[in-house]
Amino acid sequence: MRIRATVAAVTGALALSAFAVPAAHADEVEGDTKISNVVVNGGKPVVATATGAKNVTVTFTATDDSGIDWAQPILYHGSSIEKSDSGAVANSRDGSAKCTKVNATTSNCTATFTLKPRENLINSVAGTWKVWAIVAAKDGDYAQKDNAKSFKVQRLSKLTVDATPEPVKKGKTLTVTGKLTRANWESGKYAGYSGQSVKLQFRKKGSSTYTTLKTVKTDSKGNLKTTTKATVDGYYRYSFAGNSTTPAVNAAADFVDVK
């Protein structure tokens, strides 16, 4: 079988520093080995800054009636691990998972990965990533999954707001500006996020609830600008709902005193 060669190769290669994509084409199982309960980053999207490395932990359960010998997960972006985007693959730090025996048939496994801009993160790979995983049992059985779990890898977003003039007379017009930016993993900076719908929200002084006043779109440089009537003292903010490549973010509120 195809995977037999992979199992043998990986078993003997756990100490190797080099990583090669496994020669597997789809999920394969031999015997009763199972992979379950896969969790990436505690179940939360992985959000990476413009420059800093992001450590990602993957946990899963491995079972077989003979016990678990070893396991290895790999993170990748693409339609399959063999067709992963160039560079968008992450191997665990020591090339395998650390599996702790729960009982004679079950082990809990953990592996830590590092995602870093300009290495395995470029702007085009923001979005859905997958976990490739293989588990080998002590009796020679195995289980291999091309997509054991899907998860999001996102570009950190930032949002600002500024309402003027301050203070303002009741009934007069406020101009509310701001900017939506997100991490550019290729330049190592934060760039304006154009064409995005952002809500202008208001919270009355003494209240804990924001009300949406209107929706504004960012311009070609991520800038926001709109107007609204001043009625009472309160806080203004912009709020971005986020999407598959970029997390939601709220601007720090700007208080306006109405005279």
Rank of each mutant, 00 (worst) to 15 (best):
M1Y: 15
A5Y: 15
V7P: 10
A9T: 10
L14K: 09
L16E: 15
S17F: 12
V21C: 09
V21P: 07
A24N: 13
E28C: 07
V29Q: 13
E30Y: 12
T33M: 04
G42P: 00
G43Y: 03
K44M: 05
K44I: 02
P45A: 05
N55I: 13
V56F: 12
T57S: 07
V58N: 06
T61L: 14
I68N: 01
P73I: 03
L75E: 02
L75I: 04
S79M: 06
A90W: 13
N103K: 02
T106P: 08
T106C: 10
S107P: 10
N108A: 10
E119S: 11
S124N: 11
K130Q: 15
A133L: 09
A133Q: 06
K138L: 15
G140I: 03
D141G: 14
R155K: 02
K158F: 06
K158T: 08
L159S: 05
T160L: 01
P165V: 02
P165A: 01
E166V: 06
K172I: 12
T173V: 13
V176A: 10
R182K: 15
R182G: 15
R182C: 15
A183Q: 01
E186S: 02
Q196R: 08
K199A: 12
F202A: 04
R203I: 05
S207T: 13
T209G: 11
K217I: 04
T218D: 11
D219T: 00
L224H: 12
K225S: 06
T227D: 01
Y236I: 00
A241Y: 12
G242C: 01
P247E: 06
A248G: 01
V249C: 10
F255E: 09
F255D: 10
V256F: 07
V258E: 05
